[in-house]
């Protein structure tokens, strides 16, 4: 019942002055409230995770954690072997995945036929959704069983398998956003197609491609399951020994959190905060660097 609206035969001036009905005002308020509540439901868990990691981790994140390896037995020591392992394995995984992912993204966006593009896109989407523990088992069969040895290289490969589809999809999508006029402008100068792609299209989409890489790196840095079957984890500092087991921050957190020893629980919180800062640091530094150069 819209009581407040004057009858049709009222003058326009009267109808304008009548204002919004109370009912519409209520619906509007309810709608806004729901949207706000949904937003909070998204933000609150994120904020809570950040809050707990910082609150609980800050105390445990000290110089010892950063600079000392774990002791062979018992508590004490640090997580040196863990963050070194994460940096190495994620680094190698990125080195493997970036060329493959970007090249695949370029292929789908610039050269593949309609059907091939759809098939590859579908495959990538499936890959992004595959539970990471399956990737771990796959690489375990491929690179651990034949050598009868858990090794960090297998860990890197597993992480790379996880990163590639993320980079491929993002690259493909941001290349699709580059205006056709730019490609044509380059081709019309007699620039070959491959050179147009590498020197005009890709640089134009640089920021977006970097975002894809960062998403992939962050995802890889946070993975635990695929490393359980591959790099295994270790209490020893391992630098460059990709043929041997290697630890990672996630494995350190996993083991520490399961431990009945309170000191190890605390160290796990410290490692969690360290992991968070590591990912954040990479993210920020890459973004700052990509902001240099000529801007639109």
């Amino acid at each position: 019942m819209i009581g407040a609206v004057p009858a049709r035969d009222a003058t326009l001036a009267e109808r304008l002055r009548a204002g919004r009905s109370p009912r519409r005002r209520a619906v509007d308020r309810a709608g806004r409230g729901l949207a706000l509540a949904a937003t909070l439901a998204c933000v609150v868990p994120l904020a809570a995770v950040l809050f707990f990691v910082v609150a609980k981790g800050a105390g445990a994140l000290n110089l010892d954690l950063l600079t000392k390896p774990a002791k062979a037995l018992g508590t004490g020591g640090g997580a040196l072997q863990s963050w070194l392992g994460t940096v190495q394995m994620v680094g190698l995984a990125t080195l493997i995945a970036v060329p493959v992912g970007i090249a695949a993204g370029i292929y789908v966006s610039e050269f593949a036929g309609h059907r091939a593009a759809r098939a590859i896109r579908f495959a990538s989407d499936v890959m992004v959704g595959v539970p990471s523990i399956l990737v771990g088992i796959f690489v375990y069969v491929l690179l651990v069983l034949p050598f009868r040895q858990f090794n960090a290289f297998a860990g890197s490969v597993a992480l790379a398998v996880i990163i590639v589809p993320v980079i491929q999809r993002t690259t493909e999508e941001v290349l699709g956003l580059v205006p056709r006029e730019l490609r044509e402008g380059s081709l019309a100068l007699g620039v070959p197609s491959w050179r147009t792609t590498l020197s005009v299209v890709l640089p134009t989409a640089r920021a977006g491609v970097l975002t894809g890489v960062m998403l992939g790196v962050a995802r890889a840095a946070g993975e635990t399951a695929p490393l359980l079957f591959t790099a295994l984890g270790s209490r020893l500092v391992n630098i460059g020994g990709f043929g041997e087991p290697m630890d990672s921050l996630t494995l350190f957190i996993y083991n520490g959190a399961r431990s009945p020893i309170a000191a190890l629980n605390d160290q796990a919180w410290g490692a969690a905060l360290l992991l968070l800062l590591l990912v954040l640091g990479i993210n920020v530094s890459v973004r700052l660097r990509s902001m240099g150069g000529v801007r639109a």
Binding site: E181, E184, G185, A188, P203
Partner: peptide
Amino acid sequence: GMVFQRPNPFPTMS
């Protein structure tokens, strides 16, 4: 050579 309807300088280049 060709000049297009909308100016299309390469945005990443000086």
